[in-house]
Design a protein around this nucleic acid. Structure first.
Lengths: 200, 200
DNA sequence: ATATAAAGTGAGTGCACACTTGCAAGTGAG
DNA sequence: CTCACTTGCAAGTGTGCACTCACTTTATAT
């Protein structure tokens, strides 16, 4: 046991949130018990409750972190002018991001979280909606300049964007993280692009 | 309390399996406690253990039921000759099936189940793989006769088929079952078909 | 009829979990 | 230095859960 170090609440909250995401990635939402989270964060279990009112608050914090990460991903392409290129970068970055943070799909798409708790569900819903709108906006740009198929509605093209990633991740999770998501990214993108580009 | 009725193990197993699927649909995998399942099945909690070794066996039974339902959905189109029509029927039937059995996505795509238990994960994986292969076969037929795009690989077209459904279901779940999945089915299909048909 | 086996029950049992509490120790203001 | 406050901890506590057990009821074979 090393000497204990006093930290500010902000630091601890960040550490605990990250530890929670980590544990969720390894053991799922159910496996993310207070004991596990505390141990991953390097604090005592009781100490969790100095920095969060209860476990739900910790999960909320995780969801909010994910939300802001997604905002960052969307934000990284604002200067790119070609919408198709924008989508491609976002697509690949999204896969990379998930590959490095397995906890994310396990949080966002955890039926339990969504079903059991109205509060959490609302948060997750908003987060996904926000991301969805971001993608949709790019898609509509793409349709306007004639790069993307205009006979499909933007909603559908966006759904396919997220759906493709979503299912790829599901398969990846089920196959014990193999093959690497990022290895599949290029192929996935090529096929998706082929599906939604303008046809004549 | 009505008079208790003695039934054979086969009958009870079926009832319990269906009750479990029902409860999972309403309350998620976590909400499907032994008390809840027993009460939904109309038997005592202790009696569950006359017909199943443990809760895991009940969930396995649920997964197997889903598997055989999916086989039935695939089997329903063997006589249809046009592959595109086959896909369309399967697509819509799949959505209808899920709409009537919310427990299915909540079982199959429950990260918890998949993460926590190697046994369950293997089952779910096999079930999805089986379905995936079934769809892929139809897709390849479609490519052979030139109805579907031959420049996309069949794997990708199949992934998009399931991914589209998967994400539509996720949104539907998150939005409290509205709008009705089957109301969206036509639009979803039209867009999907547009994405994967042969381009010239 | 009676014995045997299977189906049924409900009151436990133990365990894992989220959360609390009482007390120790670090930190900054005056 | 000292006081008020916050962070930290270990050992609880209560609860909900899967599962068991002792016992009863029903079906069936001889």
């Amino acid at each position: 046991m090393t000497k204990r170090m006093r930290e500010t609440t902000e630091v601890r909250q960040r550490q605990i949130t990250e530890a929670a995401l980590q544990v969720i990635g390894q053991k799922g939402i159910n496996g993310a018990t207070t004991v596990e989270i505390a141990s991953a964060a390097g604090v005592s279990e009781g100490n969790l409750y100095r920095h969060f009112r209860n476990k739900e608050e910790i999960i909320i914090s995780v969801i909010d972190k994910i939300g802001s990460d997604l905002v960052a991903i969307l934000g990284a392409v604002v200067d790119v002018s070609d919408p198709l290129k924008k989508l491609e970068i976002t697509f690949k970055r999204h896969l990379m991001y998930i590959e490095g943070n397995v906890g994310i799909p396990r949080t966002i798409f955890s039926e339990e979280t969504i079903v059991a708790n109205e509060n959490l569900r609302a948060r997750v819903k908003n987060t996904i909606l926000m991301y969805f709108q971001g993608i949709k906006q790019i898609v509509e740009q793409g349709q306007k300049i004639g790069a993307l198929d205009t006979e499909m509605d933007s909603q559908a093209i966006t759904s396919m964007f997220i759906g493709t990633i979503h299912f790829a991740v599901t398969r990846w999770l089920m196959n014990n993280f193999s093959p690497k998501l990022t290895d599949d990214a290029e192929g996935l993108w090529k096929n998706y692009a082929r599906a939604v580009i303008h046809k004549d």
